[in-house]
Write a protein that binds this DNA or RNA. Structure first.
Lengths: 111, 111
DNA sequence: TAAATATACATAAGATTCTTAGGTAAAACC
DNA sequence: GGTTTTACCTAAGAATCTTATGTATATTTA
């Protein structure tokens, strides 16, 4: 993801949020989208991405449909209703995480 | 830390930043401080904390001095010069992480 | 006053999530 | 024709955490 341990644990949130925005995406597309959005500062590794997608699918958060484009297979993933709920939950947890880390690293001044 | 995978990878940053602010702290004190700052929403587990402190010390980021208070041992940790550099580096990485996650989850509108 | 909780340290087994390294295959570029 | 890009995949090992357990003293509560 980025040589940086902080990214550990956030891949699921990223996948879900991108799918919520884009409707449906295939794996390789997700890696490129993340590079594009972050100006190359984040790099989703395929060894992390594909197992994550399979797990989300197994848990019922994603559905998949294969499509043949230019003689190559693409597997398009999209959110199930359960996956949409999960996305909202994880985005809310991300906000709470950031607030907590802000509170710890930038303590408010007490008079 | 918090049932939530997002926190995975941020313990080191938390320890270093608290030590930067407080000068010196002992392990148990760190767990209490984090609870206090986050209103109980974060809970550093001892099974994660102590190995982390030992690792930071082994890497040369922390020094330790034991002190006996009310017949109990406290191990006070403080930042080495190298640890201070590391703290700045990790805080900068935290900011970059948050900016990247913001960019992905709250995409700016393009007109 | 006895039991429970809080303070204070520690380690070990197992879970989870990642990186690294490898593999297959077709299209596009040089 | 060889390299890069596109597109999927898995397995071994690393890193970080949780859970469980252990030791020991002090304080609070029933």
């Amino acid at each position: 993801m980025s040589h940086n341990q902080l990214y550990r644990g956030s891949l699921t949130t990223i996948i879900l949020r991108l799918l919520e925005q884009e409707g449906k995406m295939y794996g390789y597309e997700i890696t490129q989208k993340v590079k594009e959005i972050t100006g190359g500062r984040m790099d989703i590794k395929e060894g992390a991405l594909y197992p994550s997608l399979h797990k989300l699918q197994a848990e019922g958060h994603l559905t998949v449909e294969a499509e043949k484009v230019e003689n190559r297979i693409r597997k398009y993933y999209s959110l199930t209703p359960q996956g949409k709920k999960q996305t909202l939950a994880m985005l809310s947890e991300l906000r709470e995480y950031m607030e907590n880390m802000q509170a710890i690293t930038n303590p408010k001044l007490v008079f």
